[in-house]
Design a protein around this nucleic acid. Structure first.
Length: 564
DNA sequence: GTAGGGTTAG
């Protein structure tokens, strides 16, 4: 590694002044060592490095702690040039050979600055390494996305501590090698290492990734045994594990017994409800969170916007959009892509397009959201055009997650339906079902395509496969939004009209439109927060939509999934 | 007392 104390290039170096003080400063400060350290630390941590350096240029040479603070303060500056100058000063001071803290701080500095090659060279040249040095390097490799190198360091270590195991487990789980992470946890525990809050957080994330509630329950036992149930991070990851494994109630219980909640705990609760089909409760939770004095972050907003999309509550979606603008979170890609989906599902494709145009940096999920929005509105050609545009970006295709592939295939299936191409539809549907065998919308769409081509044998084959695989079709739903309330209608088919509810609605349908609305307002059949559900047959929904008064928004979402 | 790790989302 090339290290020089002299000035390099045209950049001005304030370290150069050091040599002057090295030979001239003999003054002894009146304040105690701990006072100096405190002041120096505070200057460094607030980024006032020059000030710290100028005020304590003499003390730096007699107190190795000050070098450590100085090294840490350089991390956010992200300047390899200045980092190397400080590195050379550390060598000049003699602390590089004398002090293991200073050495590890330097290693950590290169890693945190993203300079993995400098870090590796530094590690290889280190005169002495301890467990900490190895742990820092493992984390560096993981941060750089190089799990193999991380594993090599881990395997070759002469001695390990809990943090070593934590670094390796969290690295594996981070890259979704969840099973390997859990195996490592078992090995670690077998060797007598006790899990700490860091271990438990990673292991629970691994269980969540595997939807492994049985393993998760065992980890829950460890959480209770070692007394981490009220730890905010452990509690949130434990609740998340349950909620990902479809045990919403168990997850809620974990959060509810916690004496304190932070934004992450609230987000876990809100996202858990949103993802388990409890969108109605999400807005209530969101309001409770704000009432407790916490500000929503982009993760909160994403979950709440998705719930508005699920319920097609346009007005509330717009309110949250306004809050996102106020919070300055409206340029975050995650928030924008959920806004695109929300506006699309609420029937406002133009607003989806507007949200897309607000975005400065496009990523794969964002493109997919807009492609799906076009597909959702039956605008297959625009969807394909956007897909072609996206194809231009090489990097974009490579970074595409699995979900995006499904979206693209489903968009193509939608186009097959419009163009009545049954053969291509069959091949496309096979591709989708290979990726997601439980996708009910694809079965329904494929069955309809076969039906319109009068291929009855194929229709029956699709239906049989659906039954065999126990695929549940989501009901088609329509909405009527009146004064910030949502009236939701599910189509139950000709037989459903015979039930009492159907009769009741039929009666309602024969009223004039003012009476219809009044009737709806007083007859809450199902009343989660602001949503009322009626079961109607298709014609009645159409008829009811026609009676909607001016200024009231009526939308028909059609069958859930692709197409319209 | 000067060094390293964990959780939530589109």
């Amino acid at each position: 590694m090339a290290i020089g104390v002299r000035r390099i290039g045209g950049e001005k170096s304030w370290f150069c002044h050091l040599h002057h003080f090295l030979s001239t400063s003999t003054e002894n400060a009146a304040s105690s060592i701990s006072d100096i350290e405190g002041e120096f630390k505070s200057l460094c941590s607030t980024g006032r490095i020059k000030e710290a350096f100028n005020a304590y240029n003499a003390e730096i040479w007699t107190d190795q702690h000050l070098f450590s603070y100085l090294i840490q303060s350089l991390i956010p500056k992200k300047s390899l040039f200045i980092a190397k100058q400080l590195h050379s000063l550390v060598i000049t001071s003699g602390y590089y050979f004398k002090d293991k803290f200073v050495r590890n701080h330097l290693l950590n500095m290169y890693i945190k600055m993203g300079e993995i090659h400098e870090a590796i060279a530094f590690f290889n040249a280190m005169p002495m390494r301890n467990i900490m040095s190895h742990n820092i390097l493992i984390n560096g490799h993981v941060q750089h996305g190089d799990l193999e190198s991380a594993i090599n360091v881990f395997d070759e270590m002469p001695e390990r501590n809990v943090a070593t195991w934590n670094a390796m487990i969290s690295g594996l789980v981070h890259f979704e090698f969840n099973e390997n992470g859990l195996f490592l946890f078992r090995e670690m525990h077998g060797l007598g290492f006790l899990p700490d809050e860091f271990t438990l957080g990673s292991v629970l994330r691994g269980c969540a990734g595997l939807r492994a509630s049985y393993a998760g329950k065992q980890v829950h036992a460890y959480v209770l045994k070692y007394g981490y149930e009220f730890n905010l991070v452990v509690g949130s990851s434990l609740a998340h594990m349950y909620m990902k494994s479809s045990s919403l109630g168990e997850g809620e219980r974990v959060i509810k017994v916690m004496p304190m909640r932070n934004v992450v705990a609230w987000n876990t609760l809100i996202a858990g409800n949103a993802q388990n089909g409890h969108s109605e409760g999400v807005l209530d939770l969101y309001n409770m969170m704000k009432m407790s004095g916490l500000r929503p972050d982009k993760i909160t907003l994403v979950s709440v916007i998705s719930s508005c999309a699920e319920l097609a509550t346009l007005f509330q979606g717009q309110q949250i959009h306004a809050e996102a603008i106020k919070a300055g979170a409206n340029s975050a890609v995650a928030v924008l892509s959920s806004l695109i989906s929300m506006y699309s599902k609420c029937g406002c494709l133009e607003d989806s397009m507007k949200a897309l145009s607000d975005c400065e940096h496009l990523d794969a999920v964002l493109w997919s959201s807009m492609i799906a929005a076009y597909g959702f509105h039956g605008r297959g050609e625009e969807a394909v055009h956007l897909f072609e545009q996206m194809e231009q970006e090489e990097a974009m295709i490579r970074s595409m997650p699995l979900e995006a592939d499904v979206v693209i295939w489903k968009t193509l299936l939608s186009a097959c339906k419009i163009h009545r191409n049954a053969d291509m539809a069959t091949r496309t549907a096979e591709e989708i079902l290979r990726l997601n065998p439980q996708d009910s919308a694809t079965y329904v769409l494929l069955s309809n395509i076969h039906a319109s081509a009068k291929r009855w044998k194929d229709v029956s084959k699709v239906r049989t496969t659906m039954r065999d695989r126990n695929v549940k079709k989501e009901p088609g739903l329509s909405w009527l939004e009146v004064k910030n309330r949502i009236f939701q209608f599910s189509m139950v088919g000709p037989h459903g009209a015979k039930n009492a509810l159907g009769k009741c609605c039929k009666k309602m349908f024969n009223m004039n439109h003012k009476d219809v609305i009044d009737y709806i307002l007083v007859s809450q059949i199902k009343s989660p927060s602001n949503c009322i559900t009626f079961n109607l047959i298709d014609e009645e929904v159409e008829g009811l939509m026609d009676t909607a008064p001016a200024g009231c928004r009526a939308r028909n979402r059609g069958y859930s999934g692709v197409g319209a």
